[in-house]
Design a protein around this nucleic acid. Structure first.
Lengths: 333, 333
DNA sequence: CTGAAAGCGCTTACAG
DNA sequence: CTGAAAGCGCTTACAG
């Protein structure tokens, strides 16, 4: 009924449980014939190890934690997929946790994962809970920060080039002749907010333009603020002739606002957005987007983590910066 | 450095580890004063239990497995969110697994989760691996099937009313005067394919119409088949004047095909789809959709599972059927 | 009400 | 090359 244990295998094979353990873990000091006998017993009983006992006694649980801010955002679900695929290949499992941008919830998860004895952690951090994260590091549990990085917490990191991407997007608008380009961008407390605004500034300055302060709107990455801030922009005295929106959710809200005002893109107003959700292609005409390599973001962060896990060396933290791509109306199924 | 154990607490409190365990597990046979002393030691050391040891020795791991077919489909990610929220409330954690519609991958995960000693399983099954699933049931590990159900595997189940939803959608087209309504629908081997086709038939028959066999296209729920089958429909002798598409991904492909043919919805062709992804609102005009309560799907399945876990009764399997809603162009942020 | 002890299923020194 | 034994951190009968 219950699963067979190492004891059952030992009995069937006529050896000690220590020997079975050695065979299962591929130790080299085992007689080849003994190994065969044991493996036969393993097959016969369809034995597979109890993961809890292994984790308790040994060091490793073959489990990693993944904490993201919002799995409903395709950015994160695609990323999660990249991580899961890699983990699967390596024989690891994933505890999926959603912080909902809530530091307290993140803290709870960090505590819980600690006691589940995860081998490693991939996190897109809220920005708080630094002591807890450091506790992991002290315990030699590797952490990879993905998508955003906490300043001062030195771990392996995988980010996309937020500044470069925003720069590309804004320059596209400039190249099309728009002169009064507004921006709706995320909080200036985190890299994905800050760096995208930097890219906006650098693009304008390359064109020798001065940013108009009323054209800079700081939202919180949600549809709601995207909508509200776009409405504000459209009711200004000095109306912008184009807008760059700093993520997919705010862009969605902004589109609704633009539609309410019966404006057409690109004739009435220029529009470029960060992220490339599928609805950007459904829009007519297809929207110009800055696409982040989200699957790769997951893949690379998993690779960094497994690298630490397998070669447990003390080499200094690595940072990977992935390129973002400007997509102009091409689409594929 | 390492976490404090029950032993450390016992030493600090001056009692045995058995007593500490009793306090922690809220047994009633503990002297109130002893309880206070122990709790103080727990606080002081910031002790929290090692989940692996608890799982190995006790019965429960406070962990559930979730196997879905494709986390990238918002249907499943929203559902997963509903499950995670509920699990979190109950103090459980989630192993997230993606089968990718691949029975072999599903099998691997079922094996792995078994050995991680999950307390319960929520699964949107591929349709195979029945023996493995039965092994769980024999071991009294409750299973909830969600979104789809394997015929003959009797477990708690949460589905949406696929037939009713499709019926609503097709009848909407009929009510608008379309007469030659085609359907692109999923495989007829699973409920979400079969029942939606049934709804199509029942709607036509309510209007005393006979289905035209060339207008019935069976795809596999992917964008690719949606695109290809829509193109087939548009090149028929007897062209349909409307189409009902059986899920969000196929609908995406179908829209691209319709756009290639320069047809406008709803004037040139009627269009209603199952599922309500955000891009349906971005389309101009907003598409008519049959919305599944996906968050609720997750919530309800989690509730059924925790109900089994907490009241471990042997009551017969329950089935919940959730209503789907026809959305006609209303949209909200 | 409390403690000593066994045991969950493993891995890992320690002998031989 | 192999086995007996200790121990990972808990829970749970069994005594008292």
């Amino acid at each position: 009924m219950v699963s067979p244990t190492i004891k059952d295998v030992a009995k069937l094979a006529g050896v000690s449980i220590a020997t079975v353990s050695r065979v299962l873990n591929d130790y080299d000091n085992v007689n080849p014939e003994t190994r065969i006998i044991v493996m036969k017993a393993v097959d016969e009983l369809k034995y597979t190890a109890n993961a809890l006992a292994k984790g308790l006694r040994g060091q490793k649980t073959k489990t990693i934690g993944l904490i993201v801010n919002n799995i409903l955002n395709p950015i994160y679900s695609v990323m999660a997929q990249g991580i899961e695929d890699t983990a699967r290949e390596k024989g690891y499992h994933l505890f999926l946790c959603n912080s909902g941008f809530n530091p307290k919830q993140e803290e709870d998860y960090l505590e819980a994962l600690w006691h589940k004895r995860i081998d490693g952690l991939i996190i897109s951090p809220t920005g708080n809970n630094i002591p807890l994260l450091e506790k992991y590091l002290h315990a030699k549990i590797p952490i990879v920060q993905v998508d955003r990085k906490i300043v001062g917490l030195e771990t392996d990191t995988v980010l996309t080039d937020n500044e470069g991407g925003a720069n590309l997007g804004v320059k596209f608008l400039l190249s099309k002749g728009y002169k009064k380009i507004a921006i709706i961008v995320g909080m200036q407390t985190i890299t994905t907010g800050m760096d995208r605004l930097k890219g906006y500034f650098s693009a304008l300055s390359e064109y020798h333009l001065t940013p108009e302060s009323s054209h800079i709107k700081i939202g919180d990455f949600t549809k709601q603020t995207g909508y509200a801030l776009m409405k504000e922009l459209l009711s200004l005295e000095i109306k912008p002739d184009a807008v760059f929106v700093g993520n997919n959710l705010m862009a969605f809200g902004a589109i609704l606002a633009i539609r309410e005002h019966k404006l057409r893109i690109p004739n009435d107003i220029g529009f470029v957005m960060f992220d490339n959700p599928e609805w950007a292609q459904i829009h007519e005409p297809p929207l110009v987007t800055v696409e982040q390599p989200t699957y790769l973001l997951g893949l690379k962060s998993a690779e960094l983590l497994f690298n630490r896990l397998e070669f447990n060396n003390g080499s200094p933290p690595q940072s990977i910066l992935l390129e973002n791509k400007l997509l102009v109306g091409d689409f594929t199924i």
